[in-house]
Amino acid sequence: MSNATINRQWTTRLRKRVEGVLPPEKLLPDTQPSYVASWIYVFGVATLAALGLVTLSGLVLALKGPTWWHVSNVGHFVNSVHLWSVEVFFFSMVIHLWGKFFMAAWRGNRSLTWITGGVTFMASIGTAFTGYVSQTNFDSQWIATQAKDGINSTGAGAYFNVLDLGQMLMWHITLLPLAAIALTGLHVILVRKRGVVPPFADEVSA
């Protein structure tokens, strides 16, 4: 078996490609540029941590199904954790977004990082919204009856029926979280691949 044969294999090619784009020292770095020194940098990782908590509490809620939290103290507490981790998630994500905007973090071939971040924000809003209408309480009833008009007016309501609990719950616990988590993963990989954006070269541009 020759080396050339090995090198032509799909598997080998994929591995080399991945190694080239994202070598381990980029994926799990042990140093970073010295300009990365501000509290504003912690909101990305804070958002990731909150996403972890949202997911974890959501998984616990899934164990006993959508109406468990109405009748169990433990369930209600897990629901509280789910709610507050969502609040903290958006809180951190919005500050992260403001921070990255004012750093113009799309510079230097990093526009796809910005775009995936923006799309993740939208997917997260959709995930949160379908969660709000899946609460099976007065809040979900009201939000669903209000939101139907907006969504129907775009034509999407014909297929995306916010009054259908089953449909909304499925979107909330499978389709949208998968999208949000996959997008987040892509976003993080892009950050690791391209690195953190350098400061404006004021002495150059001035």
Binding site: L53, N79, S80, L83, Q141
Partner: peptide
Amino acid sequence: GTIALVVMSLLVVMLSVLFSSPDDRP
């Protein structure tokens, strides 16, 4: 990442204990 997870967990548990969550019957 670990510090972020610990800090955020504490924050979220604190908020949950302090404020709970709303659940008005349908």
